[in-house]
Design a protein around this nucleic acid. Structure first.
Length: 752
DNA sequence: GCAAGGTC
């Protein structure tokens, strides 16, 4: 009997589609590692195979494996092979015989079209291929899509393949060129790509703006007035010239003012729009959750059926989403009060964002958790629920007021803000609406001055991108996609190009961008993506042919490579110079030189810029090293923090010779390791075994005072005895707080 | 070992 074969992009979507089409009458089948869903529909037998994204991946033939021996011009002209990367999916597709109709039901977007077309290669036979076009996994949408099947858009799939091949060609060729040229290979390779390199360039450019920024002085004059309450008015503009500022200040100092005008108006503060991935990650990042982490958590919440699909650009709820009944679910939850506000409205009118796409809905909660959530799961879910309810509630209303007050011919402005109706702020507690008090004033009345201030200020350099603003910038420049942007930022971290939040470039990142921009090519600019997008559209509309576009790109790459080659020496020099510079973490407390951390493959060097200085030592591994503002209790120099993945930070004195570092506070009674001071993630110090994570022995410590080792071992429990010096107090104690030693009576202790 | 794009 012949079958219809339906192909979905992911397990979840496949299950959902089968569920809808089969009217809940479907059967999960599994044989020899091949799993699929079977169901009947109008007397026809249907098989649903769910993929997991792309089945194949582009690569170069084996003969180009060696980076040093491969000729890059030959690499550019090489054929591109496609390797299977999801064997399970390809096996499943190959296992069916006698397929009548293939229905591609992947996400309705460019990559979805390619994923569908990729899968055709693995089918033994079929008589017809169709495409299901749906924008959400709802009953109506899916049924309509399968009733009105359309043709596959092979041009669209071709355009996605052109994108893939061009990315591989430029990425691999330039990655290899820069890595081999600067002799940074294997783990230390220099990675180049259409999205990551322009993103890094943004970060570096901002850093340069900050470095080159010259602050300018300016002056602000303000007056504190009183009418029943105090309020402040500021001179109408900032003043650049000091003598001008002083002359105005002299004119007004110690004088009262006269109200020239007073206006009030009611304004609405619009509620937020539904969550796209980018906006969600930005908000999560404000709550201290990194995008990578937020994405991981969101994926888990999605897989456990608590939220909708977390990868979406859409900011408009489709009509098919039952907004009200979802809000009603929260009536019986911790969100009872918030849900009530939403439900009790006469009408629920959801907010809408600017971007409306058809592949997925915005992110919204679909269910309540069975068990209470914890940690980041709780935070992310809370964010998504509150955002959802806020988009369904009402705008806030404020009254804003503005007064102009004259003193001796100079105009001062005071503003006020009063909350009339907090609206959505009651639900979305991540934002606060401030009140600024300004009394009701009448034109012509005089107000008495209380305080007259002239302040000198300095203009400030532009701010570094934080992860949230970087994501937004990438989105507006069309760099990356909703699914990849956060990965790209992570990649820049992993490759030692950029670090932290706010994001700073590393010396290597700066050096690399300097050398890659020594030649005018598009690889460090967002233009390359813009051009590619245009060409992809032309391929999709059959105005251009995929092969021609890729070949044109190859010719350009030959040219770009030629130019880079002619700069080989300076590229090598620049990258080496910057990579060896290390990152400055602060000023040397001894001679005021720069303290840098230089990263190597297996260790890091901490060094003062003054070569004679004793601050010059290595630390094993590749931990994050920070200079703290705390002083060493032994010698008074600053302490450094050494942060290793999965461990509590180790605290050391920056002076490698200081006895603070040699003080290991005794041996671990469990395995004989050294007991060292570490810091918990809440900033509390404690004693831990140096063999962590193999050994998990820890002891709490008093948070104040200097801890000294005594060289003695507790006779009761074997832990080392410690001496606490806090001002004049000295206290010998066992760090094992439950230990009998600490219960000894005072008389006995005094004797010791 | 290279990119960026899917998804887990």
């Amino acid at each position: 009997m012949s079958i219809n074969l339906i192909i979905a992009e992911k397990a979840d979507a496949g299950r959902r589609i089968a569920y809808i089409l089969s009217e809940k009458n479907m059967h999960q089948k599994k044989s020899k590692n091949i799993s699929y869903i079977e169901f009947d529909d109008n007397g026809e037998k249907n098989i649903m195979v769910a993929l997991s994204g792309h089945i194949v991946e582009s690569d170069f033939p084996e003969s180009f494996k060696d980076w040093i021996k491969s000729d890059l011009d030959k690499l550019i002209d090489s054929e591109i092979v496609y390797n299977i990367k999801n064997k399970k999916a390809s096996d499943a597709l190959q296992s069916f015989n006698d397929i009548k109709r293939v229905i591609i039901a992947t996400d309705y977007d460019r990559e979805g079209e390619l994923i569908g077309v990729e899968s055709l290669k693995f089918l033994k036979n079929y008589t017809e291929v169709k495409r299901a076009k749906f924008s959400a996994l709802t009953n109506q949408e899916i049924k309509d899509a399968f009733k009105n099947l359309i043709d596959v858009n092979y041009g669209l799939a071709d355009s996605a393949r052109a994108r893939e091949e061009i990315d591989l060609l430029w990425g691999a060729v330039l990655t290899r060129f820069f890595s081999v040229t600067s002799n940074r290979l294997w783990k230390d390779f220099i990675s180049v790509g259409r999205v990551q390199t322009p993103t890094l360039a943004l970060i570096v450019k901002r850093e340069e703006e900050i470095q080159n920024f010259i602050p300018e002085k300016y002056y602000q004059i303000s007056v504190k007035f009183n009418k029943k309450i105090d309020f402040t008015a500021r001179y109408e503009k900032d003043i650049k010239d000091k003598s001008e500022a002083e002359s105005i200040f002299n004119d007004i100092n110690n004088r009262d003012g006269t109200v020239k005008s007073y206006d009030r108006e009611e304004k609405e503060v619009y509620k937020p729009v539904p969550f796209s991935t980018t906006e969600f990650l930005r908000e999560a990042s404000r709550l201290g959750i990194t995008p990578s982490n937020a994405m991981k958590v969101a994926e888990k919440l999605y897989m456990s059926g608590l939220i909708s699909y977390p990868r979406t650009d859409n900011t408009v709820y489709q009509r098919s989403i039952p907004l009200k009944s979802i809000a009603e679910k929260f009536l019986k939850s911790d969100y009872e009060n918030e849900a009530k506000l939403v439900i009790n409205q006469e009408r629920i009118i959801p907010s809408r964002g600017k971007i409306e796409t058809t592949d997925h809905p915005p992110i919204y909660p679909v269910n309540l958790p069975q068990k209470p959530l914890n940690g980041a799961y709780k935070t992310v879910y809370d964010l998504i629920v509150r955002r959802f309810l806020a988009t369904l509630y009402k705008n806030a209303r404020i009254e804003s007021s503005r007064a102009e007050i004259e003193i001796n011919g100079h105009i001062f402005v005071a503003t006020g803000q009063r909350i009339l109706d907090p609206g959505w702020y009651e639900i979305y507690k991540f934002r606060k609406l401030n009140e600024i008090r300004l009394p009701e004033l009448k034109s012509g009345e005089s107000v008495s001055g209380r305080e007259w201030n002239l302040e000198e200020k300095e203009t400030e350099p532009p701010k570094r991108y934080d992860i949230a603003s970087l994501l937004k910038m990438m989105e507006s420049l069309n760099l990356g996609t909703k699914s990849t942007r956060h990965d790209i930022i992570q990649k820049l971290n992993d490759r030692n190009f950029a670090t932290g939040n706010p994001v700073r470039p590393t010396p290597l990142g700066i050096g690399f961008i300097k050398s890659v921009t020594s030649i005018d090519s598009d690889i460090a600019k967002p233009d390359m993506t813009a051009k590619l997008e245009k060409e992809m559209d032309e391929i999709a509309e059959n105005k251009k042919n995929e092969i021609d576009v890729v070949n044109e790109s190859r010719l350009m790459l030959h040219e770009v490579l030629k130019n880079f080659r002619s700069n080989r020496d300076s590229i090598k020099e620049t990258i080496t110079e910057y990579a060896n510079k290390g990152e400055v973490i602060g000023k040397c407390p001894i001679d005021n030189g720069d303290i840098s951390v230089i990263k190597y493959r297996n260790f890091e060097k901490i060094k003062c810029s003054n070569d004679e200085c004793k601050i010059n030592f290595n630390i094993s591994g590749t931990p994050l090293i920070q200079l703290t503002d705390k002083k060493c209790p032994v010698c008074g120099l600053p302490l450094i923090k050494i942060i290793r993945r999965g461990q509590s930070p180790e605290i050391r004195c920056i002076d490698p010779e200081c006895s603070y570092n040699k003080n290991t506070y005794g041996k671990c009674p469990s395995d004989g390791g050294d007991l060292i001071i570490r810091q918990s993630r809440y900033g509390k110090r404690f004693l831990g075994c140096s063999n962590y994570p193999k050994c998990t022995v820890t002891y709490p410590l008093p948070q104040k005072g200097i801890i000294n080792s005594t060289g003695e071992v507790c006779p009761y429990c074997g832990a080392p005895l410690l001496l606490l010096i806090n001002g004049k107090r000295r206290w010998k104690f066992c760090p094992n707080i439950k230990c009998e030693y600490n219960r000894k009576d005072k008389g006995e202790k005094a004797k010791e």
